[in-house]
Structures are given as structure tokens and as C-alpha cells.
Simulated assay, not measured.
Amino acid sequence: MTRRLFTAVVLFAAALVTPAAAAGLKIGVTPGAYADSVAAAAEEAKAQGLNVEVVEFSDWTTPNVALEAGDIDVNYFQHQPFLNNAVKQRGYAFTDAGVGTLANVGLYSLRHKSFAEIPNGGTVAIANDPVNQGRGLLLLEKAGLIKLKDGVGFLGTLDDIVENPKKLTFTEVEGPQLVRITADVDLALGYPHFIVAAKTFDPGSALIYSGIEDRQFAIRFVVKKGRETDPDILKFVEIYHSSPKVREAIGKAFANNPKLYAIAWEK
């Protein structure tokens, strides 16, 4: 091989490698707290030589589809029970590479100031996916509005309600859209970070909240199995955990109200 040909081969190989290196990581998120905090971590990562592209999704299905297809490297929108259910239902070979923020949920009413005021036959909006619906039902049970079958836990569904003294009627809604229907019902399950982002009502006005006892519902950095030890992914998770700018973004996304969230990796 001549020197000129050898040089051409080396340059061609470098051209193949450079774009991949420049691509860095693509992380899928949903808008609000998760997008804002990951974007803050991405800025820190860039300063440390790691390029991160933040990709927003508006639903809770597409981020896993995109991860499975290889369109993104990581997603950050789901908690462990949601992930377990997705793996069971879709056969995904996913795992987590680190824990993130624990977003509390609440029961909100823009019509009533207490659970006692909710009328017989009142309307309730609740998440339509199996895991988050169960989480909402547990909160309704905690509030004394319903009773569930023994042992159903967070996998409970509307069919598991055994006592409903107020004869409440339920509307099932995609989780991120619950904020839009809250004004139309007597009571709605709510995700404070979506409420903060929507700026429609006070996220601190829930009649009841979940709390740190819901630790399993902390959001996870989810990857395909085999990539949980990827150095770039672990580096990004560490940046997320240690960055003051990330803490600031999380706090802002939750209206700086400690009732609405917890820093799960420290609890």
C-alpha cells in the first residue's frame, strides 16, 4: 500500500468514527420536570465533553418504542412499576441505569375544598394505564373514598373496587392529559409537575398527596439491557445526581414546593 493510499484509508476511517463520537447520547423525556432537569444536566455534560441531545415525547408509550428501536439511548419518564409492566406487556429487554426524582401525585378538586363535599355520584378522573391507575386508586383509598380488594397494591384497577359508598363514576385519561380535565370533574388524580407546566391551577392545592413511602415510583434512567454499565450513561447519571443546576431545575419544575417531590437518590 502506498503512503498516499494509506493516508486516504486512515482519513476515511476517521470520517466514519467522528460522527458517531459527536452524536453522544440521546435521552427521551416528557415535558416539564424531567425534560428541564435532563436539559440542565446536558449542559453540564457538554462542559465535560459529553454531548447529550434531549428528545421530548408527549405520551408514555413512544419513549419506550423509541428506545427499543434504537432511536434514543436512554429514556427518563417512567418509574419501576411502569417499567416492569412495559417489559411484561411488550417483552422489552430494558433495565435501569440509575434513579432520579420521585414525583408525588395528588388528588385535586377545583370544585370542592374537602373530600366530604364531593357529592354522591361525583365524577373522578384517573390515569388509564395499569400502574398509574393503581397508584391513584391507592390514594383514593387512603382518602377514604373507596375500598380495594385486599392485596391488589399498585396493580389495582377499577374492577378491584369493592366499596364505593359515594357511587363515584370514573373517567380514564392518559396521565399527562389529566391536568386538562381537572376542571370538568369533581376530583382528579394529578401530577404536580404537569400542573406546574400547564399553569392552570395551584399544584400545591391537592386535598391529599402521596409521599416518600412511594419510593418505588421514583423516575428511572432506562436503557436496553447491556448498556446499564455504559461509561457515558453512568457519567451522565452521576452529573444529574451531583449538579446544583439540576437541583435548581427540579425545584423550579415543582414550584419549589417540597410537598410535590423528593430527591429519591438521597432518601
Rank of each mutant, 00 (worst) to 15 (best):
Ser205Leu: 04
Ser205Phe: 03
Ala206Gly: 10
Ala206Phe: 13
Ala206Gln: 10
Ala206His: 05
Ala206Asp: 08
Leu207Val: 05
Leu207Ile: 04
Leu207Ser: 09
Leu207Gln: 04
Leu207Asn: 06
Ile208His: 00
Tyr209Arg: 11
Tyr209Glu: 10
Ser210Arg: 13
Gly211Phe: 15
Gly211Cys: 14
Gly211Val: 13
Gly211Glu: 13
Glu213Cys: 04
Glu213Ile: 01
Glu213Gln: 13
Glu213Arg: 14
Glu213Leu: 07
Asp214Ile: 09
Asp214Arg: 11
Asp214Phe: 12
Asp214Gly: 12
Arg215Leu: 15
Arg215Lys: 13
Arg215Tyr: 14
Gln216Leu: 14
Gln216Pro: 10
Phe217Ile: 07
Phe217Glu: 06
Phe217Asn: 01
Phe217His: 06
Ala218Tyr: 04
Ile219Leu: 06
Ile219Arg: 06
Ile219Ser: 11
Arg220Tyr: 02
Arg220Glu: 08
Arg220Gly: 03
Arg220Val: 11
Phe221Trp: 00
Phe221Pro: 10
Phe221Ile: 00
Phe221Arg: 04
Phe221Asn: 05
Val222Pro: 03
Val222Glu: 04
Val222Tyr: 08
Val223Arg: 07
Lys224His: 03
Lys224Gln: 15
Lys224Cys: 08
Gly226Asp: 14
Gly226Lys: 11
Gly226Ala: 13
Gly226Pro: 10
Gly226Glu: 13
Arg227Met: 14
Arg227Lys: 14
Glu228Gln: 11
Glu228Asp: 12
Glu228Ile: 04
Thr229Tyr: 05
Thr229Gln: 15
Asp230Tyr: 07
Asp230Met: 01
Asp230His: 06
Pro231Met: 01
Pro231Glu: 00
Pro231Val: 00
Pro231Thr: 00
Pro231Cys: 01
Asp232Glu: 15
Ile233Arg: 03
Ile233Thr: 06
Ile233Pro: 00
Leu234Thr: 04
Leu234Ser: 06
Lys235Ser: 14
Lys235Val: 02
Lys235Pro: 00
Lys235Phe: 07
Lys235His: 12
Phe236Asn: 07
Val237Glu: 01
Glu238His: 12
Glu238Ala: 13
Glu238Val: 04
Ile239Trp: 03
Ile239Thr: 01
Tyr240Thr: 09
Tyr240Lys: 01
Tyr240Met: 04
His241Leu: 10
His241Asn: 12
His241Trp: 12
His241Asp: 09
Ser242Thr: 15
Ser242Tyr: 14
Ser242Glu: 15
Ser242Pro: 11
Ser243Ile: 12
Ser243Phe: 09
Pro244Tyr: 07
Pro244Cys: 00
Pro244Arg: 04
Lys245Leu: 10
Val246Ser: 07
Val246Asn: 05
Val246Phe: 02
Val246Tyr: 08
Arg247His: 14
Glu248Tyr: 14
Glu248Ala: 11
Glu248Phe: 11
Glu248Cys: 05
Ala249Val: 06
Ala249Ile: 00
Ile250Cys: 10
Ile250Trp: 07
Ile250Ala: 08
Ile250Pro: 13
Ile250Thr: 01
Gly251Arg: 02
Gly251Pro: 11
Lys252Gln: 13
Lys252Ala: 13
Lys252Cys: 09
Lys252Glu: 12
Ala253Lys: 06
Ala253Asp: 02
Ala253Trp: 00
Ala253Thr: 12
Phe254Ile: 02
Phe254Ala: 01
Phe254Pro: 10
Ala255Phe: 02
Ala255Asn: 09
Ala255His: 01
Ala255Ile: 04
Ala255Met: 07
Ala255Thr: 00
Ala255Gln: 03
Asn256Tyr: 05
Asn257Gln: 12
Asn257Cys: 05
Asn257Val: 05
Asn257Phe: 08
Pro258Cys: 09
Pro258Asn: 00
Lys259Pro: 10
Lys259Met: 05
Lys259Trp: 07
Lys259Cys: 05
